[in-house]
Nucleic acid binder design. Structure first.
Lengths: 125, 125
DNA sequence: ATAAATGCTAAGATAAAAATTAGTAAGGCC
DNA sequence: GGCCTTACTAATTTTTATCTTAGCATTTAT
């Protein structure tokens, strides 16, 4: 995508927080749009680029490609290229990927208990 | 802060994902910069605006104020205003807040196992 | 008289994330 | 020859998040 400007306060703050706690880096990763959805999609058996793309209705090639790369870089999925034409590439979860899925499922249960309760309520003042 | 443009594809995609799974809304919330740090900060006993501000070195008033409001809106913290001058306001975690802290602590343990291993590795191609 | 204290808010600037558009390779099929 | 297929990539535009600057109220201390 685009380069980051390492001289910005924005960048410094991000780095500060990541050094403070690696949770910040994980959250930053996992909360990227479509990221967790791509992960769950693969977990459910949609193991090819096109299958994921079809399942996640509005996702663009650019973003899907980027998210798959990130998932691979963090060892959450494995990419298998069959070197065929037209291209055939398959994706599958690693153990770490499965582990993350489980954690996110717990987060998801929790989210059901707080989201849409007061979330959109109008708070006076 | 600034208004969102509800006619954008960006907005539509976000909504689509939030409707698909409330996890997306939670992740979006929790991954906002400084959000989890403010939460942990309060959990550790820094229960006032200034204490948090001093602890989180680079955070700005604007952001801290916003994050506290979000935490309150989602019932993760409680705000107690003592109506004194100079102002005295205290923050404390709710049960839901504590619950989230625990979840995030598990995420944090997990992050230690994947971040800085392959994360910054150079992947050929 | 003025400075300090605390907990904020508004408006504007800058940076980053996401979306759009247009393309690539290389073989199969009509 | 021309169109289909899959799995991508690059460059640009749009939208959003974050940061910066400046300010408020009201009492106590100097």
């Amino acid at each position: 995508m685009t380069e980051r400007k390492t001289s910005s306060t924005n960048y410094r703050n991000q780095s500060f927080l990541e050094e403070k706690c690696s949770l910040n880096e994980l959250l930053d990763l996992v909360s990227k749009r479509w990221f967790s959805d791509v992960l769950f999609c693969i977990e459910e058996g949609n193991n090819r680029f096109k299958l994921i793309k079809d399942d996640l209705k509005y996702i663009s090639d650019t973003i899907l490609s980027d998210r798959l790369k990130l998932l691979e870089r963090y060892n959450l999925i494995i990419r298998t290229d069959f070197d065929e034409i037209p291209p055939k590439v398959e994706y599958s979860l690693t153990d770490k990927g499965e582990e993350l899925v489980e954690l996110l499922e717990k987060m998801c249960e929790f989210s059901d208990t707080i989201i849409n309760k007061a979330a959109h309520a109008v708070i006076p003042g």
